[in-house]
Nucleic acid binder design. Sequence first.
DNA 1: CGATCCAAGAAAATAATTTCCATGGAGTGT
DNA 2: ACACTCCATGGAAATTATTTTCTTGGATCG
Lengths: 288, 288
Amino acid sequence: MDIFAILQEERSQFSTAEQKIADILLGDFDFAVKASIIELAEKAEVSPPTVTRFCRRLGCQNFADFKVRLAKSAFVGLRYLNPEAKSTEPADVAEDVITKAQNALFLIHRSLDPLILEKAADRLSRADMIYAFGSGGNSSMIASEFQNRLFRLGCRVTASSDHNMQLMFTAAAHSNDVLIGSSFSGRNQELVRCFRLANENGISTIALTQSGSPVADAAEIVIGIDLAEGDNIYRPTSTRFAFLAVVDVLASLVAYRNRKLSTVTLRHIKQQLVEHRDGADDRQILGD
Amino acid sequence: MDIFAILQEERSQFSTAEQKIADILLGDFDFAVKASIIELAEKAEVSPPTVTRFCRRLGCQNFADFKVRLAKSAFVGLRYLNPEAKSTEPADVAEDVITKAQNALFLIHRSLDPLILEKAADRLSRADMIYAFGSGGNSSMIASEFQNRLFRLGCRVTASSDHNMQLMFTAAAHSNDVLIGSSFSGRNQELVRCFRLANENGISTIALTQSGSPVADAAEIVIGIDLAEGDNIYRPTSTRFAFLAVVDVLASLVAYRNRKLSTVTLRHIKQQLVEHRDGADDRQILGD
DNA sequence: CGATCCAAGAAAATAATTTCCATGGAGTGT
DNA sequence: ACACTCCATGGAAATTATTTTCTTGGATCG
């Protein structure tokens, strides 16, 4: 499906000539997208037929098909190799911010493990009570979003960004509750403490954080979110979009698992909103 | 830059044959991306040269270049014509959620007006105090994010999701303050009331909402966010991603405008985080 | 009514791509 | 150690696709 993933996966199995092509591809992507097969062959110092075979090897029908796929991937997939935005003009800043966000989504999509999502959704959908923890602006937003998505589905859920409250909630939690925590850095020691305590008490823990980090190590189920951030300090982190996407995916999965309850609850909420607002129409958004 | 936008803008100026090509393009996109110039010409019932001319007209160098651009656009741009996800399997749900989010970003990118962004950023960067208002889960998240992004840049800002507090804040605001409000539906009457009051008192108002809605009508500067939502009630709205992107764009613009203050403030915050956390490294994220 | 201009197609030329075949090198078996 | 085989690679030719040029038909304006 995605040229990039294939390129990196199969990399080791490439022959000398194919390696050269791959190097050009990864090194000068823009060129590769524009170039004809001959130009590409010349630059890689191989013959055109080798390029064609290379395309076939990558699961494409022909060079044209390959270029199309390459272009598709390039649109979102490889911007992270690109430099910063050109200027501080609104149009450029908007492009930069949005491209980075799309990138983050692209990358998280590739790195998400369906089995882990399944496991996490399973725990959440069967939980008596869900505690969503996160601190420090970014992660507290994620925790709130968990609450905001899940309560609509009939889940019992509370979010907290207060370390002390988190610890108390955890201590008071019952065995069939679930603790889901978010940490962008993976080094939220207070969250680690909550996870440890929860695990001691046989409470399931789910972490949205960097793989291999202290927070990840302390959690039972880890949804790894490992995106390289640009180093423009003036820009908000695009990783937020990835975290948010994970929240949405989990919430959707929980909704499908508890479909009946979700439907009833959503309908209830909608009904109240319609009754409350004057002239609200059918396409009323649940939660302004 | 984007084939789609051009296609729709220039649509009226197309000749008969060009219209036919455009119709094929819009009607069967997947085919158009795969097809050769001859296949495309046949399907549109025109001659190959006409297709080449059409490509040139759209600002492409040749047919190959055109296809590349088409493919780039297709990756994100036309998914909104696609039906719902195939199943409730984690992989499919993830793809659906993330694709929709990318779409929302794509669409908001196209519809953002740099001049309006400029104007909004200008007001925000010169404001003595910023009030970020939003209610009902989605918009309150946006308001919080405004606060969360802007305070780091040295802005004086507060967020509120409480209608009463919003009204009191507005009543108490000074003339050089700015009120920025978010409403997904555009029908948040309480926000409308705040905007009206603010305008009466000569306070600048910025709205992130649907164009032409009551909220939009009440605001001085309107950043229109008009995305069609899918009607899968189990899914969180992907429009959130668009709103969030707008927050980030505005915050970035404000950062560049008040670069000195932003730099100093960000450094201060970082310093405190580093001192507080044990073993925190240089790549510490500002706000976990 | 005629002239001119533009659009569209046909044909030819050009460019690109693929297939087929040949060569060379590495590895293996005798 | 030599030879055989297989595979990777590149070259040339054939095929295919694309573009250019030229011509025709139709529409508009004088």
